[in-house]
Design a protein around this nucleic acid. Sequence first.
DNA 1: AATATATATTCCCATATGGGAATATGTCAA
DNA 2: TTGACATATTCCCATATGGGAATATATATT
Lengths: 115, 115
Amino acid sequence: MSRAATTSDVFNAIAESRRREILELLASRERPVGDIVAMLGLEQPSVSKHLRVLRDVDLVLVRRDGRQMLYRTNAEAIRPLHDWASGFRQYWRHHLTRIKERAEASGRPRIDGPE
Amino acid sequence: MSRAATTSDVFNAIAESRRREILELLASRERPVGDIVAMLGLEQPSVSKHLRVLRDVDLVLVRRDGRQMLYRTNAEAIRPLHDWASGFRQYWRHHLTRIKERAEASGRPRIDGPE
DNA sequence: AATATATATTCCCATATGGGAATATGTCAA
DNA sequence: TTGACATATTCCCATATGGGAATATATATT
């Protein structure tokens, strides 16, 4: 097997930094493709291809307005990513904090149980 | 140019679901490679290769214990990902909810505080 | 209809996989 | 030293890019 498709899920889709930039641009307001091309300095076909990937995983929504296609970020689709990362928050506190907590709470059932 | 290397950054490294599973396993405690192989049902070389990628972007830390290599997740490295996704939180609330909140709570401190 | 404008798609190509198989490396035990 | 155990690395291969160039599609304008 080879690497998973960029359109297989949100995690793969945002692996590309250009696509993350596009999502940032389209988060606060919808914009036509041409604006993205101008703002990021990419080739138009390149932007269209990235948008296609983002659309396939529902990270952006589109609507037509005359000859323009107006894209905007579907922030809701980024949530799973945020939630996944949030699961690690409890572990990224500084060591000192963790040691302190452990000392203060000795006797308490294992915080860090098996599995 | 082709697709970016999985070791180019955290975003590319976690694009692979197997690697995300490994990070979850190693978040609460360090474990030898063999345990990961058994728990995820993957081939040993495959696990070693995934661990190599995770190491290259500092998503895991290692120490040797006899012939075993004990790996554990470096949660701190997942933070950039979480932070990036957090930037979109303000946009993923439902419209109705947002409108309602705005109407009811003008002036009230944020329910959904920072972090 | 003919032309211009805005996007999308297709083709080609160098590159980076991820899995399987085989092999190398490192460490402990007898 | 020899053998067993635990990991890591290398090779091979099918697949999926992402960028550039060329082309197709859709819509507005005259």
